[in-house]
Simulated assay, not measured.
Amino acid sequence: MNTTTDTVFIPGATSGIGLALAQRLQERGATVIIGGRRQELLDDLAAAYGFGTVRIDTTDPESIRTAADEVIRRWPELDAIVLMAGIMVAEDWRGPAFLPTAESIVTTNVLGPIRLIAAFTEHLQSRPAGTIMTVSSGLASVPLRPTPTYNASKAFIHMLSESIRLQFAGTGVTVTEIVPPSVRTALLPGQEDNEQAMPLDEFADEVMDLLERDPGAHEILVERVKFLRFAEARGDYDTVVGIVNATDPHAAAD
């Protein structure tokens, strides 16, 4: 991704990491289109930052198709999509009540990105250089006890990124995976105030620095996430699992 000249669509950029990256891309000269479900919030953000906006519900296949058609029609120079929309919800698999939550997470975190890629893949291959940017998590490598489906959904995104990168080789489309650690956002209740999580601005600034240094990188790994990402390779996986689940406030036993 060229952070200064690309036209970028970011569904799920009305808050948190998505909004922070959208702001930084816009400041550097990129044309940024953000997507979200609430039109009034999109309008406010467009007025504040100059973003293009498209209403989209990434849990709804028809909404994805309609939004993709609109984005490509209004911004035919689109170069990149950033698959930012996702949810993280605690669940307890020791009884059947977890099932609706698990299904909702899979719909948003797994089917959403699959459907978005399907909607844009032909267009991105028509560009001189296209980018599919996925967003996984350090929890794709080391599990957090209360969020099994979220962990698994991000492991899926990691392997999907690795796999489709092989298929897109030679097409001009780059597949880049952002791998966040715990970041101070509203992804989970109380996470915005979690001092163990990485400050949002610090995370976004480091991501932008890494993108600018290596626009074709396979993975964007801030230093804070490497403790999780490489636990198995270092041979201390069990130790890291224990540390993560002993120190994260969301991992406390019920």
Score class of each variant (00 low, 15 high):
residue 153 S to Y: 05
residue 177 E to Y: 06
residue 185 T to I: 02
residue 117 I to N: 09
residue 181 P to H: 12
residue 167 Q to Y: 00
residue 2 N to T: 07
residue 137 S to Q: 04
residue 153 S to W: 08
residue 207 V to K: 11
residue 18 G to Q: 03
residue 214 D to E: 14
residue 210 L to D: 04
residue 147 T to I: 06
residue 246 A to H: 12
residue 106 V to D: 10
residue 165 R to V: 04
residue 45 L to Q: 09
residue 55 R to P: 08
residue 136 S to F: 00
residue 118 A to T: 07
residue 110 V to S: 09
residue 229 R to E: 12
residue 183 V to M: 01
residue 97 A to V: 05
residue 216 G to K: 15
residue 208 M to G: 06
residue 212 E to V: 13
residue 13 A to L: 03
residue 227 F to Y: 11
residue 238 D to A: 15
residue 9 F to K: 11
residue 165 R to I: 03
residue 215 P to D: 11
residue 34 I to M: 00
residue 66 T to W: 06
residue 21 L to V: 14
residue 62 E to M: 09
residue 76 P to F: 08
residue 151 N to T: 07
residue 128 P to A: 10
residue 209 D to E: 09
residue 233 A to H: 12
residue 144 L to K: 11
residue 3 T to A: 09
residue 59 T to E: 05
residue 25 L to Y: 14
residue 164 I to H: 12
residue 166 L to M: 14
residue 128 P to Q: 12
residue 132 I to Q: 03
residue 171 T to H: 12
residue 168 F to M: 04
residue 212 E to R: 14
residue 233 A to E: 12
residue 177 E to H: 09
residue 184 R to C: 00
residue 104 S to Y: 00
residue 253 A to R: 15
residue 83 L to D: 05
residue 118 A to Q: 08
residue 180 P to R: 14
residue 183 V to L: 04
residue 202 E to I: 10
residue 161 S to R: 00
